[in-house]
Amino acid sequence: MTISWMDPHTTSKESRSCIDCHTDPKALGLGAGSLVKIKGSWRLVPATSKSRDRRLNIPRLDGFVDISGKPLVLTSRKDLRPFDAAELKRILDVGQCLICHKDFDDKVMKNWNSLSPPKPCKFFLKTR
């Protein structure tokens, strides 16, 4: 399995929404599926599966990286890679906040500092 990078040349004035990337496993290279957080750790329930024939050893076709940040593919450049474990966690954790604080019009998002993120709100604490 191999991946490349590209500019698709399908530019639009409107961008993808924050939640499109921060909560969608396919956008993060994990492949289609459902994400759940159990005891502080993210898990993926994939929508696609490995080949049932073990002899073929064909992995999930849309998974470029697993949830632990282990790359599952070769890349077309030395300096190209899927997200690593820390990046995946950081992106997905922010995704939890986006349910309420939808975009940069929201003051929490507008003042977000990745070095010192805001203290978890009550809702966030419940979902951990």
Binding site: T2, I3, S4, W5, P8, D20, A27, G29, R77, R81
Partner: peptide, 24 residues
């Protein structure tokens, strides 16, 4: 639908950039 994202170093600045990745 749903373009996937990954990391590539910018050729000129050598800084990590979040880019679109595709099978291939």
């Amino acid at each position: 639908e749903v373009p996937s994202l990954g990391i590539k170093k910018d050729y000129k600045t050598r800084q990590d950039k979040v880019v679109i990745i595709v099978p291939g």
